[in-house]
């Protein structure tokens, strides 16, 4: 299962290993990052505050934002219609400014399952969901998802019957995609916040489905 995390001694709060950083030998590429950043600041291209703000904004974005959008779509049919019509504008309504990213929401139902990939690089709805997971950028995922999507999905534990059509979305240009997973059965009594807790990152990429309550 691609999802099972390997066990490491040093795990972040999210349970993922940190890549060695602050306390190990300084790499050539780290030196380059520091040098470029300082030169960009000295030359007046950016300010240190802008760099810090950009990192902060990145840290603030997470799949929870997308989950809130999906939960709203599940509970508010008018919002759902607006989301499918113009994903960026609907997210902005909820206070998630994803500009300049252009978002298309694609919806799963009983007959359709959507999955998102970027075969040419690693395009991802990062302004809504945060940075992509490592596997999304891997050769295997990028190569195979357009060729044998059902086999890839099965590796994630998702086995789809033949009567469900799989729609693969290759993010080749200016649009980014979020999958609106199907609302699980037995969730009629749940409020938006409780519903959002069922919406996983993987379900919004399309390699998973929403959790059962």
């Amino acid at each position: 299962m691609p999802h099972d995390h390997h066990h490491h001694d040093h795990l972040s709060p999210s349970g993922h290993p940190y890549r060695p950083d602050q306390d190990t030998g300084l790499s050539y590429w780290q030196v380059m990052e520091i040098a470029i950043r300082e030169l960009m600041i000295e030359k007046g291209v950016v300010t240190a505050a802008e760099v810090a703000a950009q990192v902060e904004a990145m840290d603030a974005r997470s799949p929870a934002q997308g989950a809130a959008v999906v939960a709203r779509a599940w509970t508010d049919p008018d919002f759902r219609a607006r989301l499918l019509e113009d994903g960026s504008a609907a997210c902005a309504e909820m206070g998630f400014d994803v500009k300049p990213m252009r978002l298309i929401a694609v919806e799963n139902d009983a007959a359709t399952h959507n999955v998102v990939v970027c075969t040419l690089c690693s395009c991802y709805p990062r302004n809504l969901l945060g940075l992509p997971p490592d596997w999304y950028k891997s050769r295997a995922y990028r190569s195979r998802t357009v060729r044998e999507p059902r086999t890839v999905l099965a590796e994630f534990g998702l086995n789809l019957p033949d009567d469900v059509t799989v729609r693969v979305h290759d993010s080749t240009a200016d649009m980014r995609y979020i999958v609106v997973p199907s609302r699980p059965a037995g969730t009629e009594g749940l409020d938006e916040a409780a519903l959002a807790a069922l919406v996983t990152r993987d379900s919004m990429i399309g390699v998973g489905v929403a959790r059962e309550p």
Binding site: R150, D162, V168, A173
Partner: peptide
């Protein structure tokens, strides 16, 4: 992919 096991599945791309 002419040998696709699920021929009616689709790929959407921006061109």
């Amino acid at each position: 992919w002419p040998d696709a096991p699920n021929p009616a599945d689709t790929i959407d791309a921006e061109i």
